[in-house]
């Protein structure tokens, strides 16, 4: 090894910089509430916590594997066709996720229907490929994927928790307010599930409320006028 190039000191696996990759997307740079990416799926599939979790898992697989693949290939991809290469990577990963879900979780897969396929168009994924994986090594890219998926998943679960409890009267598909048709529990004193909360537009209100609360707590997010 007569290589006289000065080798950069090896970074520890969980250096301060790497930790920041995971923690920053959770709050200060949340992909959903700050960058407002991936809203479409947040509106569509947040009717039950189960769906939200499966969606988060699928996005984690696609983004984690995709980020690493793109990062490994980053020096080989000609920049003029990089979007096509990225698309091929996402599309193949999404097909894998889709097949796995249909094989092992057919119920959830049926409910998520086209939205698994539409992970391809989830802006967070292409956004992270373009903004991070194209310029960073595989390990930081993977951490970046972890941080972004968890940041995305937190919002998804919060929204779906609210919508499932108050819209469908269920928690993890278990009725919690009593039987709606029989009229037991809370329903016997006149409580009704709110149909509006089940509709997709309400998810927009819910995401908006989360953004409101987040900005009220974290003053650094408020833009200067």
């Amino acid at each position: 090894m007569s290589n006289d190039k000065i080798k950069a000191p090896k970074e520890p696996l969980f250096s301060k910089k790497n930790k920041k990759l995971v923690t920053e997307p959770l709050d200060d740079n949340n992909p959903l509430t700050i960058q407002v990416l991936g809203i479409c799926s947040a509106l569509a599939i947040t009717v039950s916590i189960e769906q939200a979790l499966v969606m988060t898992g699928s996005v984690f697989f696609v983004l984690g594997a995709g980020n690493m693949i793109i990062s490994l290939l980053r020096n080989l991809i000609p920049s003029r066709i990089r979007i096509i290469v990225q698309l091929v990577v996402v599309a193949s990963l999404v097909i894998i996720v889709n097949e796995v879900l249909q094989a092992f979780l057919p119920d959830v897969a049926e409910k998520l229907s086209v939205f698994v396929g539409l992970i391809i168009t989830n802006c967070i994924i292409m956004g992270r490929f373009e903004a991070f994986a194209m310029a960073n090594k595989p390990w930081p890219s993977f951490l970046d994927a972890v941080g972004n998926t968890v940041g995305y998943g937190i919002v998804l679960v919060l929204v779906s928790l609210f919508r499932e409890v108050f819209g469908a009267g269920k928690f993890f598909n278990v009725p919690i307010f009593g039987d709606r048709i029989e009229g037991t529990g809370l329903y016997s004193i006149g409580y009704m599930d709110n149909n509006f909360i089940i509709l997709a537009p309400f998810a927009l209100f819910a995401v908006g409320l989360i953004i409101w609360i987040q900005r009220a707590r974290n003053k650094s997010l408020i833009e200067e006028h």
Binding site: M192, N194, N195, F196, I197, L199
Partner: peptide
């Protein structure tokens, strides 16, 4: 509108 979409039966 909230009532109309939320509790259509009412």
């Amino acid at each position: 509108a909230f009532l109309f979409f939320g509790y259509p039966t009412m």
